[in-house]
Design a protein around this nucleic acid. Sequence first.
DNA 1: CACGCGACTTAGGATTCTAGGC
DNA 2: GCCTAGAATCCTAAGTCGCGTG
Length: 749
Amino acid sequence: MSGDRSHNEDQVDYASRVNDSHKHRDKYKDKEYKHKDHKKDREKSKHGNSDYKDMEKKYKEKEKMKHKDGSTDKHKDKHKEKRKEDKMKSLDGKIKKEKENGFASPPHVKHEPEDDYHLPKYEKSLKRERDDDYEAEFKPKKIKTENDKKVKKRKQEEDIKPKKTKSKKGEATDGKKKAKQEPEEKWKWWEEERYTDGVKWKFLEHKGPVFAPPYEPLPSNVKFYYDGKPMKLNPEAEEVATFFAKMLDHEYTTKDIFRKNFFKDWRKEMTAEEKSTISDLKKCDFSEMSDYFKAQSEARKAMTKEQKLKIKEENERLLQEYGFCIMDNHKERIANFRIEPPGLFRGRGDHPKMGMLKRRIRPQDIIINCSKDSKYPTPPPGTKWKEVRHDNKVTWLVSWTENIQGSIKYIMLNPSSRIKGEKDWQKYETARRLKKCVDRLRAQYREDWKSKEMRIRQRAVALYFIDKLALRAGNEKEEGETADTVGCCSLRVEHLKLYPENEGQEYVVEFDFLGKDSIRYYNRVPVEKRVFKNLQLFMENKEPDDDLFDRLNTSILNKHLQELMDGLTAKVFRTYNASITLQQQLKELTNAEDNIPAKILSYNRANRAVAILCNHQRAPPKTFEKSMQNLQTKIDAKKDQLSDAKRELKSAKADAKVRRDEKSKKAVETKRKAVQRIEEQLMKLEVQATDREENKQIALGTSKLNYLDPRISVAWCKKWGIPIEKIYNKTQREKFAWAIDMADKDYEF
DNA sequence: CACGCGACTTAGGATTCTAGGC
DNA sequence: GCCTAGAATCCTAAGTCGCGTG
């Protein structure tokens, strides 16, 4: 079998892995996670000369280590330190600059040179301009000649499939049109030409963002107390206090870092007087404020129908006005047109910045992106945008810089939009191209395990993990800026344990680390002997907090991958392995004789295998135990009902035997039907229970939305006559409209 | 050529909505 | 009709990756 992942079935049945691995964000460190101390050491060594010398010594020792292979020297730790210092400097500069720019200089509309990229003549045509490069496919830029044949072939396939464009139009127009006029026909962007060379649109018009509602001061009867005494805060400080008060029930507010960060930022909003009084967060009493907000939310729930409807209508109005944009002759839904309201930063895991004040975004923080010849969004009265630009090489409509990490946030389009959909489709096409050459790649990295160059061995082992275990690439992160999490390339020695033998298996590697969102990855896998030996080598003479792959980073890895296949990066493996697993599991698990609920259980199980592979976890719902119990009660009741029905059937039969008339025969039939019906109901419930139990701490949504080629699911539905609604809800159907339209029952990933 | 940053995808949790059971 | 569990949606943090720059 080519291109499947049968060489590592062990991935699929590791329900055991998930079992109690979720939510170890906090527990984790109590156990044996000692990284903190090492971190402190590293922190120290950054300053102070003697420490630096120690480092140098260590560095030299390392160099002596195993690298007799002549590979280029590289020491990640050293770079890390350097980077950090630089960043601190540049951050300083940035803050100062921001103050000068943001407030002093008037915001302005930036005018681009006339002949830039603006091509108004195209904008009226309904179809996008056809590109000069007819061969251009998903990856417009670099098309390798060796691929030309395949490209052409796929092109043809695509041209053949979409034909029913017109056919549906008739039925839809005279059909029942909903009160809110649908944006005429559903636009089948996937039947049109794509842009190449990085142009994302030619016309873009929108209304700009919706700002967070202004702060409403507390009523005078709701007081804040310091050290038992009521205290009126200035509005700014009061607002920040309310952010804390609203989170009082949340675990966050018990965490030291959170409290420390909050308090520090809160004090910045206080008057000199307030600052001098309020010196200890423990003496702050927010409970009255907290109660007030609870009462408010209760009141909101208790509102009358009309009031609720009014709010709903207002929301709808806002959505209609700001929730859409015009991009290239089509009205498209915007994903997040509301600006993030101010509040306290809720970083995940052990985030050093949790609790910091996320400041309010104002019009002068906002950059607008739209066509030059569009009607620009107007800033709120008396305000100005930071900038209006016309960059059609990007997809965002609005951006601003956030104050916690200094990163940029964007307003972009909905997943159902052309611009997102095309990219998504393209992603799966890249993964399918990987399928075609994955055997070759696997052979290659296995060969590379034997390389005499350390960097190549490391690269090959890392790639093996990424492929086999679906690990993320693992970019380096700045210490102290974010939670300490890792991916493949950033794994440290402390994250794995090697067992030459474990529970009857040879060469077992135990992984235990925090990945994205501080979700714990725990897995014990037998690996090939060569991998094991290499790992031993990589770990020799290293401290627990040293990088496992000291001669590798994501950039090196991705450059290598790019050479192996056009468009290949580490994350493509996740997409590929997820999709191919789904396809295989569906094939394996779907039983032709099963009824629809049972088939859907199979689908969910296939989906689950992928979620486990990708380590998509969730906190077990708070009500999980209870709801499980409820379900069990229902099942028991149904069982009783069934035995009753069976008894009745039996007596009806006996009766019929004696009486031998039509009427009693009919009664038997009725009873038989009843038994059958109840049996079906019982089965449905039992299936539901199984499904739910198996899903306790596994999240299916993420893989469904981001990793599974929707055409696989669509094909499966078509093949088995399962309504697509059973698999995808409305939003998902919108996102995957392209797949639903184009995949037939024989689609192969 | 490292490195910072911009753009975009992926992610889990919180909040809101809704359908189905009482 | 009401309540509530579970689904849907919203929210925004946290990744990936490529590119420009000094």
